[in-house]
Every structure is written in C-alpha cells, then in structure tokens.
Write a protein that binds this DNA or RNA. Structure first.
Lengths: 205, 205, 205, 205
DNA sequence: CATGAATGAGGCTTCATTCAT
DNA sequence: TATGAATGAAGCCTCATTCAT
C-alpha cells in the first residue's frame, strides 16, 4: 500500500519534472542559457518559480539534465539504428541519417546542443563534448573496421572521424542559423558522398 | 607641465587600449562573453573598472572590436596567402593552412572564435558568424571555379564548402579542447587529403 | 499550501506598494530626486533593494506615480471644493483654501511639490509643472468669468492668475522653509484679501 | 618686484576663475546641477578637468560661488536702483523692475536661480533662500514705511511682501519655462498694478 | 600652473535562490 | 507540495576627484 502510494507520488513527481524539462527546452532554444531566467521557464511550465527548486537543485542542474537527456536520446537512437547494419559504410550512414532526422524532428534539441549552450560554461561544454566525443568514437570504430578490411586507405582514422562529424555539424549549424541549405535531406545525401569519397571509399557515384 | 600631445602620448594611449584588448582576449578565452565581467578584464589589465570606459564605450564595443580585429587578422592573412596561388586546389590549401597556422600562433583567438561562442542572440555572435560565412564564401568560390574547370564533379558546392570548413573546424576544436590530434600540422595534411578526395579531385595520393 | 489569490493577498500587495510610496515621499521630501537612491527608499520602507523592483518598473515609474497621486489628490480636492460655489471669488477662495489645508495636512507633499523641485529636464518636473499649470488654468477661468461679469477690471487675467498662484506659493514655501508665517491659516486670510484687491475686486474690507 | 609679480599672478588666476564661472553658468543654465559634469564645464571653459580643481575646491564650491555672485549682482543692482528713489511705492517698483531687467539681460542667471538649482541640495537652497529672504526683507521695509505713513492699510506686511515677491517669481518662472507671457515688460506693468492694488494703494489706475 | 588619464565609490537594475505561508 | 514575494549579491556604468607627468 505504502509502496504503491510512493510509486504514484514518484510518477507524479517525475511527470512534473518532465514538464519542466520540456518547457525549459523550449525556452533555451529561443534564448541562450544566460539570458534564460528561471522565471521564464517557470511561466512556460505553468508553475511558480519556487516550485522549480523542488525539482531541480538549481539552474545548472537543469541544464545538466537537459543535456544528459539529449545525450541519451541522440546516442541511443544512433546505436539502435546502427544495430540494423553490419557493413561499416552502412553504419556510418545510419549514424548520420539518424542524427539529422532527430535534429529535424526536434529542432530545439539541435539549437540547444549546437547553438545555445556552447560557450556558456565549461561544465556544460564538458557534457556537450562528451556527446560529440562519443559520436566521434563510434565513427572512428567504423573507420577502423573498414580500414582493417582494406576498404579504405591506411590513414589516421581519428582525423577522418573528426572530419566526418565536423562536416555534418557545420551543415546542420548553417541550416539552423541561416536556413541554408534549404532542403537538409538532399544536402545530407551530397554530404554523405563527399565524406565517403573523403574516407577513400572506392566507386562513389 | 602640460602633457605634450606628442606621438609618444598617443602611442601610450593606443598601447593601453591594446593591453586592455589583450587582457580581454585572455579572459574571454577562458570564460564566455556573458560570464566575463568588466571587473575581471580590468583586473587582468591591471586597471580600475572605470578606466575601461575611457577606452571603450561599453562592454559590447569591446567585444565588437575584438571580433573585428580577429576578422581582419584572420581573413586578411588568408587573402594574402591565397594571392600567391592561382590554382583552385592550391588556394583552398593555402586558406586552411594559413588559418591553422594563425590559430596555433594565437590560441586565444581560436578559443574565442571556436569555443567560447556565446548564445546566438547578440552582436558578438553575429560577427563570428560573419567570419565563418566569409570563409565559407571564399571556399565556395574556389570550388565553383574548379567545377567550371571540370576538375571536380558537378555537385552542390555550398555543401562541399560547408563540409570543408566544418571538418577543419572540428579538428581544431578537438585539438583545443582535448589536445588531440597532438601534431596538428601532420593531421592537417591528412585532413586536406580527406577533403580533396571528398570534393572529387582525381588522383589524390 | 499555495497562496490563496484572495482579496487579502491582493490587499497586502497593494498596501506594500503604498508603504513604499509613503517611504519614498518621506525620502524625497528630504532630498531631491537625483540625490534620493533606491537604496535609501528601500531602507526607509524596510525592504531589500530588489524588492522595490517588484512594485515599480524603475525609479522613474515611482516618481511618476508619486506625482500623479499628488496631482490627483490636490486637483481633485480643489475641484470638489470649488463645486460647492458658483461665485467666481468664492471659487478662487475655495481653491486656495483647499490647497493650503491639504498642504498643512500633508507637509511632505508640499515639500516635494514646492521645495524639492529638481532640475527642469526630467519627467518628474514636467509633471509638477502640469499641476501648477492646471491650477493656473483654473484660476484664469475664474478670473475670465469675473471679468466678463464686469466684476474686475479689464486686465490680462493670465498675469493675474500667475500672481495669484505665485503669491500663495511663496507664502507656503516660506512657511515650509522658515516656519514663518507661524499661523498659516490667518496669513492665508490676509493673503486672500491682498489678492482680491489685486484683482480689482471692489469693497474689499 | 616680487610683489608686482604676485599681483599679476593673482589677476591671471582671478581671470581664469572668472572664465570658469562664466562657462559653468552657461552649462548649468542648460542642465541641472546633478546632470552637469565637471568635464562639461571644463570643456566649455577650454581647460582640462584637473585644472578646474586648481580654482575650486570641488563642485559644491563652484555652485556656491555662482550663487553668491548672483546674490551680489542681483541685490547690488536692486539696492543701487532703489537709492534713486525715496517714495516707498517707487522703491518697490524700482526693486522689481531692476530684477526683471537683470533676468531678461541674463537669462542664464534667472534659469539657474529659479529653475535649475532649487531642489538640488539643501546647502544651495540655503543660499537661494538668502537671496529671496533679502528681497522679501527689502520689500517688507518699504511696506512698513508705507504703513507707518498711512498710505496702505494696517495689515501684516510680511505676508504682503511674500505675496509681492511670489507673484513676480511666478511670472518670471512661467516666462522661462513656457515662454508665456511673451512680452515680459508689459506683463510686469500689469503685475505691478496688481500688487499695488493688493497692498492697498489708493487710486491705482 | 596645466593636463587628462586613472581611480573607485556609488547608483540603477537583474535574477538565482530562499522562505513564510 | 506549491506559491510567489522577498532577498541581496553582482553586473554595468557614471563621474567627482586625484595624481603622475
């Protein structure tokens, strides 16, 4: 009895926390971290400012959790999608396509991860860097596999991995900031070819 | 006796302004714009807070000048170096090599331009974006030239330009943040090859 | 439990605002606008500096409200009292007597309106001038009526109105500053006779 | 030799001090005391800010001296002019006409005495009040004389003196602030009649 | 004497966080 | 738990005054 009660309370608490997180994402996507006030988030979440502190120790804890959530969402999606493929090139392609699709679907997420939060605070940067590093690591693993299979030249796969991730990052940022390229999906195909050639894949159309 | 309004005095004033700019660059390289206080800059420059305002109208004017200086330093260097070459591929290579060399020489500049990018909604960031866009534009021009010469495939050069710039950006950022790749100059050569292949240049070693 | 958004809460807020206004009036009565700091007002009102900004957008908004309140209090009292009379001379007398009575009752108000007038270039002063002008306008209307009735000579009623208001102003100011004349009410009677004669009323005792 | 040298130096110093005072008057007439910076005065006087402090202990000392100068100029003019008359009414008229003429000639003086400085600071107010009180005292003396001669009714001459001065003050202030009455000299004649009647003079036209 | 750069206290305002209800 | 008023530290900027030249 007491147990179920607690569970229910926990659920309720969790759901309220989720609501705040959702509201916070929206507000952060518009303004930068520093320019976003707790009051604004609370208003968006339709709670009082004080209530915010029942769910988060402070502002930093909030942004931390947001980034961690995104970390999870993004990398989990990528890992799941990659699991459907065994070929290195396919896995690379799957990684990026998943990433792009998620960003298109959740533009706020892209804005926060790529535009708003960077530069705010070394602690958050560290989290963001974790995500990026994880993505780079995955990419490098694929490249190493392809290299060991002799399907790409014997080059520094770390640099290639950075180039791969960086090129996508730039295209997405530009799309977020300037709205160009207009059709991100088409551009991603071009970009993929660019990178496959860059890695040294033979017979790219 | 009165100050003699000689060159000496003027130089001293200019040099003081430079000192403040240098101090500000150092502080900005560590913290973001929003988290950098005038007080901190003044302390670094060993002046009183009020003195800052003798040299800059306000905080925004300072950051504006810093970024404009960097804009000038970076793009002027690149343009100068590019002028030595007529071949499109050579110009692309010259662009990036100059950029990298400058960043190695002036690490704070790289940190400010690439890492401490603050939230999107201010003049500071707008200027930074200008720099990036200018670099992308230059790259695209080279690619368009190469395309018209039939030396690279008929693909969206805007996307290629973004990929090119983005891949370098990522490598430099990683070097700044993690110290890897350790030997940036060597990696840049690899990266260049990656990109040349990516663009579709034939016979890249 | 949540605050109940009852009348009680609202009243409390309003009363707090009133308290701040009262404190501000007291401080302004001692020092001029420019020399009055928010901190001083907050201390007088026994609140923190930040609390002030929960009730007023900024310093100007406060002074605006203070003067508008006074504008309302003073002119409304005068208009109400005048409504009891139809004779021009009676209305003039009613105007000034009401004014004097209010100033005796609310000495701070008199001090702010008459003594702490700050430099000309701000909104505060503009409002104060509005009050004075309104009073002059009312006086002029009475004089015009009397003139059209042939009860005072055919002279420039604007000048007379200024003289009328100015003479009262001077007496009150002197009373505020020097405590003389000691018995303001008696002096006001004398002053009234002075002005009635000045206007050209016949048979003033 | 040394003596003459010193004298010369003193003269020069005095003349520079005068220049600063003149500049300060101009600046104060435009902006209020608080909004007038030493830098602005120095610029108007074509000296360096530091130089200001060679001639005045501080900003307060400057305004003090300005007001004292005006005190002297105004009251001395009035006293001189009054010396030409022996009749009480003539002396009253001479007082005010001199005052008005001086204010018309030196509008800055009027602005400073009547509009800018009041309310700034109790210390300056005190000086201003001295001037006003002196004027009131002179007026009262005339009225007392007239009363003892039986030429005006047996009323409180202090109140009459206040009314007299206050009515002029109001007209001048209105002229400074609003530009009305347009022709001050004509209005002053009307005003004089108003006051003569007010005092109880017989046979005012 | 003159200069004007330098100083730093102090003013206004914002906002993360606390706390009485 | 929920509320939102209250707090006060901290930031930006101004300006009277000082001081090295």
């Amino acid at each position: 009895m007491a147990y179920r009660q607690t569970n229910k309370v926990m659920e309720k608490l969790q759901s309220k926390k989720k609501e705040i997180l959702t509201a916070a994402r929206e507000v952060f996507a518009e303004n930068s971290y520093q320019r976003t006030s707790i009051k604004a988030i609370a208003q968006k979440a339709k709670i009082a400012t004080g209530t915010f502190y029942l769910y988060f120790r402070n502002k930093d804890a909030l942004i931390n959790m947001i980034v961690e959530e995104m970390f999870y969402e993004l990398l989990e999606s990528i890992r799941n999608e990659r699991a459907n493929f065994s070929d290195g090139f396919d896995k690379l392609q799957a990684s990026m396509e998943t990433c792009i699709k998620l960003f298109i679907k959740e533009k706020n997420m892209a804005k926060i991860l790529l535009v708003q939060v960077p530069g705010v605070n070394n602690a958050f940067n560290a989290k963001l860097i974790d995500i990026e590093n994880e993505l780079i690591k995955l990419t490098k693993e694929d490249l190493d596999e392809l290299k060991s299979q002799g399907r790409i030249p014997n080059e520094d796969t770390f640099v290639s991995a950075l180039a791969f991730v960086g090129s996508f990052r730039q295209v997405i940022i530009n799309w977020l900031r300037e709205g160009k390229p207009e059709d991100l999906e088409v551009s991603v195909a071009t970009l993929m070819k660019y990178n496959l050639r860059g890695m040294g894949k033979r017979d790219v159309s």
